[in-house]
Design a protein around this nucleic acid. Structure first.
Lengths: 350, 350
DNA sequence: CTCGCTGTCTGAATCGATTTAGTTAGGCGC
DNA sequence: GCGCCTAACTAAATCGATTCAGACAGCGAG
């Protein structure tokens, strides 16, 4: 009533004629004071509109904020619209929520204006996606703060990931059981070197910074070789960013090939790529899978909630998120964790 | 080296033999000290591994945290997997990012174990989705803290929204230009009363808590009436939660009707519902749009990146997010804002 | 009666910064 | 040489809590 400013714990204590310690205990450690006093304090707090201890002050004093930061290699805008990242976040959120923690979103690709150090508020970090060490530093991951990595393995930190090579081998192996005439691979960011379109030999010679996509490629190649197809002879296209907009022109170019050169099997490194191919092929009236077979990777919902269903490898990103969150909260010992994958046969490549 | 603990500003100052004020200014107000001293301070900071002022302490002292909280009516798990909410978050993140702020995710449906008051760390709030006042209170939206509402209008706060009634009138009007034999409506959470399936009269008599879906329904009804169809005679089904899993059984039930009772036009209140109908109808071999026409609402990417494309009303959720974020940051005066919608004609209902 | 113990409650230090008011020194004009 | 202004720097209060180390009272045992 009197003051418009929010009332503080100290003022509340003075109103009641008790110490600040008792008020604090009334909110945090009920066993430390008599029932009667506690009730009196809570009643007066309600009366004066005191909402409980201020989070900023509490976190300074205790050193804990109940906040876990997720540091994303890609921009927030991209990540939030990407099904795989969203699933991961959703798994993280589920566990944090259940344990009274909240989620702070941080991007490695943040604006330079970002005040350095502003992230030191988090109790722990979950880093997702391939992040150069420089990014982690500039994003101010404090040296001695707990960090769990997802889908990459920075030295000295526990990581949650899947086994990409066998998984991609498995799906390629499945697809190759009916021998294709003209198989092709559509890959995702093999190197830091920008490349959207047909991959030349030069690109494949570059150092394998992108470990996930590298492993998937190796799996594809192994399956091809085992089926008697020389991987070097299989054409490959690269996609710069895992979005429909960026995929579409590359796919259109592929589909524009003359009929006797057009691939009849597309091994795609992500569901987004595969779904884009599926959509554009259908718009052209190609029959799936008779004229063109397509496989994906990830197992996002969109690929299953459609007709024909996408043949893909499901990785349970939600579960990855749950595991990472449990490690950060200390509910699980922090150690490298391998999540299982599952081959899902849809109508896009039976 | 010596101490494993993180070094503080005060210790850094003592190392250098300068006051803490100067060290603070070296990081925050370069114009307040000589260039030479500043360089000396920053060099020593680097040497000792000081990463800049601690965010917890800074936020306590200044009262600002550079954090904006998004309070979601639904669970985080649901919201992160919902395309509309993700788009909104993505718009918010884009603006916050560009201005050195970060995003804290809070759910109105949070676990009861949530420490009350833990959200008082945020500088401002963006609330999304219909949120009963009680939820906003229990989620501890501080009374005098800035809040912008999206898609609902709590008293005393600015709101960002679209004009639902004319938008849904427009799409129904479009669809009814070819007169349907058996139109039907699939609605989304018209009341707090749980109902997944055929809507009885009782449900429609309930108080209109869900303002958005109510408005959309009124728009549909107005269009029907204008085209000479009695809205009371149009069957309606309700969907409890906007997900494939919850939608699917209801849609299956509708499609199970004998051929001469099965609807030939589905006016759906969301793209998720419409896409579920589209998928399940295709799996049954129904021809779209010859056997069944379907319209959606929202304009999510998934509906456009497919064949046939979904006929829908696009609402630019990303833009809603940007606007809300700008208001919260004070870049734009906080006032109610109406975002335009756009009718998008796809092949699902030409 | 005295000792020690338990249950309540308090005083004061502390977390790590920001910021106001003020001190000091140097430069400049006249 | 004097006064005034500015630039550079500092001392100390403050933000709003948590928590440790007692203080005090009451009570039962010996």
């Amino acid at each position: 009533m009197s003051s418009s400013r929010r009332i503080t714990l100290k003022e509340l204590a003075r109103h009641l004629g008790v110490s600040t310690a008792s008020v604090s205990n009334a909110f945090n450690r009920p066993d430390q004071l008599s029932h009667a006093l506690r009730e009196r304090i809570l009643a007066e707090a309600r009366r004066l509109g005191y909402r409980g201890p201020d989070a900023k002050a509490r976190s300074l004093r205790t050193g804990r904020s109940q906040i876990v930061a997720v540091l994303l290699a890609e921009s927030l805008t991209y990540s939030l619209n990407d099904a795989v990242a969203s699933e991961l976040l959703s798994g993280i959120a589920e566990v944090l929520d259940a344990h009274g923690h909240t989620l702070l979103l941080l991007s490695g690709r943040q604006n330079a204006a970002q005040v350095p150090g502003s992230s030191s508020i988090a109790d722990g970090f979950i880093a997702y996606g391939l992040m150069p060490p420089s990014l982690m530093v500039s994003a101010d991951v404090p040296a001695q703060r707990p960090l769990v990595a997802v889908d990459f393995s920075p030295e000295g930190y526990p990581a949650v990931h899947i086994d990409n090579e066998p998984a991609s081998y498995a799906i390629a192996d499945h697809a190759l059981k009916s021998p294709p005439l003209r198989p092709a691979i559509i890959s995702l960011r093999l190197t830091e070197q920008p490349c959207n379109g047909r991959v030349t030999e030069a690109h494949t010679q570059l150092p394998p910074e992108q470990t996930i996509t590298r492993s998937r490629l190796i799996g594809f190649h192994r399956a091809l070789a085992e089926h008697g197809i020389d991987p070097a002879g299989v054409p490959m296209w690269n996609i710069e960013e895992n979005t429909f907009e960026v995929c579409a022109p590359v796919i259109e170019a592929i589909l524009d090939s003359p009929d006797d050169e057009r691939p009849d099997l597309l091994l795609c490194m992500s569901d987004r790529i595969a779904l884009t191919a599926l959509t554009l092929a259908e718009r052209r009236g190609l029959r799936i899978p008779e004229d063109l077979r397509i496989t994906g990777f990830d197992g996002i919902a969109e690929g299953q909630y459609r007709a024909p269903r996408l043949t893909t490898v499901r990785q349970d990103s939600t579960e990855k998120g749950r595991i990472a969150a449990r490690m950060i909260l200390g509910l699980t010992p922090s150690a490298d964790s391998l999540v299982a994958t599952e081959l899902m046969i849809g109508e896009s490549c039976p």
